[in-house]
Structure formats: C-alpha cells, structure tokens
Design a protein around this nucleic acid. Structure first.
Lengths: 225, 225
DNA sequence: CCCGTGCTGTCAGCAATCTGTCAGCCAGGG
DNA sequence: CCCTGGCTGACAGATTGCTGACAGCACGGG
C-alpha cells in the first residue's frame, strides 16, 4: 500500500509517517501544496492524507484539481477542530473521510485502513480468497486456516493482490505500489517475490496471465488464465 | 500501561500519580479541562482517571467529546460524594466506572487495574500465557509457577504483551506505551529490554516477527513466528 | 553528604534474515 | 521449431535484530 502524506507541520508529518509505516504503508511525504498537487496528480496512491492548511496552495483546491483530473485515490482530510464548513466543503470536493485535528494516531490508522479496504469495494479486515485468508490488521496470512509466515514485502504483495482480487495486476503496477518512486529496481524483483510466495503458499494460489500480470486464483478474472 | 490523570487539586493529583506509578502505570497529568481534552484526544492511554470538577471545561463534556471522537480508553471518573446524578450522567457519557471522593487509594488502584484488564477483553488479574503467568495486582511474574524477579520496566513490557497477546506489537507501539510522549529514546532501547527479559524468562517466551514486532509465544499470531 | 547498587539507555560489533540481481531454464504461442 | 516472457536457484549486498560492555542516573544506607 502506497500512501501520500500532505502535511506542513514537520512534527505531525513525522508521526504520521512512522505510524503509517508501522501499519504497513509505503509512505511518501510532501510539505507544500504545489508539490502535493504534482505528486498526487502524477503518481498512484492507495491513500492520501491531506492537511487543509498548506503553504502555496490550499488543500481543498488541490483536492478539487485532483478529482477533476481523474485521480480516484481515497483521500482522508485533516481539518482544524470545529471547522464545520471545512468538512462539508471537503466532502463536496471529493474527500472520502475527514479527521479533526488533533487526533489519535490509532484512530487515523483505523480509518486509513478502512478507506483502503472500502476503495477495493471490500469492508472487512479479513480478506478471504479461496483457501487463502489475509488479516490486514494483524498482518498475518493463512492457508486453510494454517498460518503462513511471510516477510514484510511478501505480505504487502499478497495483501495488494487480495484487495484487488477482481483484476489482473501488471508487474509494473506492483513495482509502483510496493516501492513507490524508488524505481531503482528491475521488474524481475517482482518475479522473485512471486516465486518465494508461491513456494510458501503452495500452487494454485497466485495465477499468471502471460503478458498481463498476476492475480489470486479463485477470484474473478479467470477469463484468460 | 499508560495512564492520564485529569485532576485540578494539586495534592490529590500528586497522590494519584504516586499511587498509580507504584502500581506500574506510566502516569501523565493535566490539571485543566482543555489540556485534558487535547491530551486524551491525541494520545493513546490504557486508562484515564477523570475528575468531574474542572476549570475551563467540564469533565462530563470532555468525556462526551472523547467518546464522540472515537476514544475508547477506559475512563474512571471521580465524583463528589453523594452526587447521584453525576454518576448516572457519567455512565451515560461513556464512563466505565466511578469512584466517589474521598476514596482510599487502594480502592482506586484496584478499580483501575480491573478496568485495564476488562479493556483487554480479559477479566482476571492473573494473566496466563503458555508457561508464563503475570499477576497484575502483585506485579509479579512466574514461569511454570516459579517467580521471576523483574525490574519495573521489564514488568511493564511483559504485561503489555500479555494484555495484547493476540496481536503482534510493533516496537514503535511499545515505545509509546512504555515511555509516553518522551520520544527521546532510540528504538534500540526496546531491543535491550527484550534481550534482558529473554535472559530472565528463558527462550520460547517472547517471539519476534522480523519486520513486524514482538508477541508472546503460545498466543494467537504465530503466523509470522 | 558520599558511596554503592541496581536500573536503563546507548553504542558497536555480530549474526541472521531479507531481497535484488543474474544467468540459465522452461513453457506457450505463433 | 523458434522466440519471448516468465520462472527459479544461487549469490551478495543491505537490513534488521541481538547482545555484551559501558556510562549516567536515581535511590537508599551509612
């Protein structure tokens, strides 16, 4: 899961980064409105945390621009306490949730996770796909109820597949969502992780559509499998 | 265990702090309603002791706001003797227990402990996890019934793990619950305590999920063991 | 008031694990 | 039958966690 944090207060930003990272997100951070607009419009995020008070360019404006540009990432806005109107405007502008400042990190994480799941059209933290189950809160994976130990990277990969079970995911997309802008990696890195995952999960779990990408077996797109 | 004391009477506050600290809590203290609201809404506490008579902002109001913001920490309110209505209102507002003033410290401690345990979904003061048992009242720990002497910090760490046995706890979370806002410590401090604990408890008690965190062996999340 | 003791954080070196790359192999499609 | 894309085992650098040693600090005794 790739997340963008748009926040100018360095301390809050650091806290956000730490908490989201601990929750399994790959976090990127920008501090001013212009970079935010650019990044959000250019890259694909699974979640954007947006502070409304920003230097250079107002948060609401950015959000509207993103939406008009076709950016569909779920956006969680941070509003000033009691700024009622801001919330309404935020929702109008296309925010998916809001959280008044100050807030508890725990709560932000909970909402962030909920947003990501909802964006995938799925509500629960426990994702079931065929014999495979992925617990996004505990960050555990099991086959037929038997726990399978995964490394952080492997876990991020399966959970991404689980949350997007109805599509076939191109390797380039995985690259992007697992590593962010750090494009210093070959596409082959994904293949390596897939191999290791298959070894741990057994056959018949992760399918390949030659030329397109990967998907979880037992979900929709068996079409050309 | 991290506790917040909201109390304006300096003398009572000092007593509370001392007693709770002696009972193994990491105590933070605020004296007026506004700071209380802020702290409680921002930080994660395992227990909040809330006096209802407060300057600047009434205790009940604060409690209601916390609850509406999604704060789920157990709250123990201190009411004036015989203030019947206050108790009812308190429970309505989301308090978990109340104690009429004046009270004996022993009783407060007992109730505080009970609240913390209940919040973890566990009723008993004696936590059993595998060969390990943690007595939250006596603040003692035993392996196979044999007492193991622990330092205060070590005890706080194991009891936190015991009360959250069904999850894997990230080092950052431990940092937060063992030291509060005092973030002047390196993540390595946790590793040091873990090492010392393992030396005392023996192997096979505290497990590591590399990249995720720590957990007690013999509990649920073996997935990454 | 000084000293000793125990507690705890930091540091530095070590060990284990993770992960990206490479090179060769395999399989499917045309 | 060849070619391309994908798979895989081996290797090496990078990360992460572990541990022993040391030092600062608080506390209690004399």
């Amino acid at each position: 899961m790739r997340a963008l944090v748009v926040e100018d207060d360095a301390r809050i930003a650091a806290d956000l980064e730490r908490a989201l990272a601990a929750a399994g997100f790959l976090v990127e951070h920008v501090a001013d409105g212009e970079s935010a607009w650019f990044r959000g419009g250019t890259e694909n995020y699974d979640l954007i945390v947006l502070d409304l008070n920003l230097p250079r360019l107002d948060g609401l404006t950015i959000l509207k621009r993103w939406r008009s540009e076709g950016c569909e990432s779920p956006v969680l806005i941070l509003t000033a306490r009691g700024a009622w109107t801001e919330r309404v405007e935020g929702i109008d502008a296309g925010a998916d949730d809001y959280l008044p400042k100050p807030f508890r990190m725990e709560e932000l994480i909970a909402r962030a996770r909920a947003l990501v799941r909802r964006a995938g059209g799925r509500g629960t933290a426990l994702q079931q796909v065929g014999r495979l189950s992925v617990d996004l809160n505990r960050m555990t994976v099991a086959m037929d109820g038997v726990p399978v130990p995964l490394t952080p990277l492997e876990f991020r990969l399966v959970s991404y597949l689980a949350l997007n079970r109805d599509r076939t995911i191109a390797p380039t997309e995985l690259l992007e969502h697992l590593y962010g802008d750090d494009d210093s990696r070959e596409a082959n890195a994904i293949e390596a992780v897939i191999t290791r995952l298959r070894r741990k999960l057994g056959p018949g779990v992760i399918g390949t559509r030659r030329g397109f990408g990967y998907h979880l077996e037992g979900a929709a797109p068996e079409a050309g499998a």
